[in-house]
Amino acid sequence: MVQLSVLDLSPIADGSTAAESLRQSGDLAAHVEALGFRRFWMAEHHSMPGIASAATAVALAYVGTRTRTIRIGAGGIMLPNHAPLTIAEQFGTLESLFPGRVDLGLGRAPGTDQAAAYALRRNFQADENQFPRDVVELIDYFRGGSGRRVRAIPGEGLSIPVWILGSSLYGAQLAAMLGLPYAFASHFAPGQMMDAIRVYREQFQPSEQLEKPYVMLGFNVFAADSDEEAQLLATSVQQAFVNLRTGNPTQLPPPSAGFPDRLPMEARLILEQVLSCSAIGEPKTVRNGVHAFAERTGADELMITSQIFDPAARLRSYSLLAEAMEPVSA
């Protein structure tokens, strides 16, 4: 059975605050840990009014204090925004605080717009090989060794699994070349998913960290007591995505019955495509959707995300998923 994990963007619901969202992320992490999910990851996004996990390592430190056994990690850290040494130190600190529980997923997108990228003070004019060099430099800080002038303390000598994240063939090729596990953002950018999985598996070269390919795929789940209720819950992320695509990112809106039906046909088709990797419905519907997706892709693990307006409904969605898929991890 495919393993299940959780990706939480710490969504800021309309009328709420980042403080409330981060506390709710802690609640969610403790909840899914009790349900048996394998990992709890958070993602780096900047200048987004509806996402509270910008300072990802700090947010994960809080989540670590709310949990005991579940793996915590970044899905991901947008490495072009940072010096590799800084990330090595941050995640070395997390691993020192929560030993044996920390993952580090790395992406090459800035996770923001050009204005915020400029505010981050990083050089985005670097050549296309800068990201691979930064990944190798970061891994090298964890390896450590004598004679180094610059050392990551904490970080050096710690075993922190590094993942490559992506939504294109580029990340698949890099993960294969470096022999790292690969996570694909199919929960919002599924277009090249099957090609990326194929390229990664065909080109994979074993490494110290990993002997054979390991694929994790993002997948949206909205589970409720009825298909109709679940479809209503899903309208929040549908609205948020349309707002983002039209240049007006907002806090996570409340559900709106019939929202997709009010969109122009072109917008409706785009929405259906980008959120096509989803299971929406009562437990049996969700179970069938998850099984079908896992069978079609051969994924080793699914990273479940559920951007639901009501925190209680979000917790229940994960509970219903766990009941439907029991056990949630093999």
Score class of each variant (00 low, 15 high):
241 F>H: 10
200 Y>F: 12
17 T>F: 07
300 D>H: 15
189 A>K: 06
302 L>C: 04
143 R>I: 13
294 A>P: 10
230 A>D: 07
183 A>S: 14
254 P>K: 13
256 S>T: 12
90 Q>T: 07
325 M>Y: 03
121 R>L: 14
224 A>D: 13
60 L>G: 05
275 L>K: 01
156 E>N: 13
146 S>Q: 14
172 A>S: 14
128 E>I: 01
41 W>V: 00
173 Q>S: 15
233 L>E: 06
271 L>N: 04
12 I>P: 05
100 G>A: 12
180 L>Y: 12
3 Q>V: 12
41 W>I: 00
328 V>N: 08
9 L>S: 01
91 F>P: 01
125 Q>C: 09
107 G>A: 10
24 Q>T: 13
144 G>Q: 06
276 S>Y: 09
76 G>L: 10
269 L>W: 09
329 S>H: 12
8 D>Y: 02
40 F>K: 00
216 M>Q: 06
293 F>R: 05
17 T>G: 10
50 G>D: 10
79 L>A: 02
129 N>K: 11
9 L>N: 06
243 N>H: 14
44 E>F: 02
251 Q>M: 13
326 E>I: 02
71 R>M: 11
176 A>P: 07
37 F>N: 00
272 E>W: 00
283 P>N: 08
242 V>W: 08
302 L>P: 04
107 G>L: 01
189 A>N: 09
197 I>A: 03
81 N>D: 12
318 Y>Q: 02
284 K>L: 15
57 A>D: 12
118 Y>T: 15
197 I>W: 02
298 G>V: 08
99 P>H: 13
264 P>Y: 11
188 F>K: 01
328 V>D: 13
121 R>N: 15
291 H>A: 15
180 L>M: 11
323 E>V: 00
40 F>M: 03
78 M>G: 03
245 R>L: 14
76 G>A: 15
58 V>S: 12
306 S>P: 07
217 L>N: 03
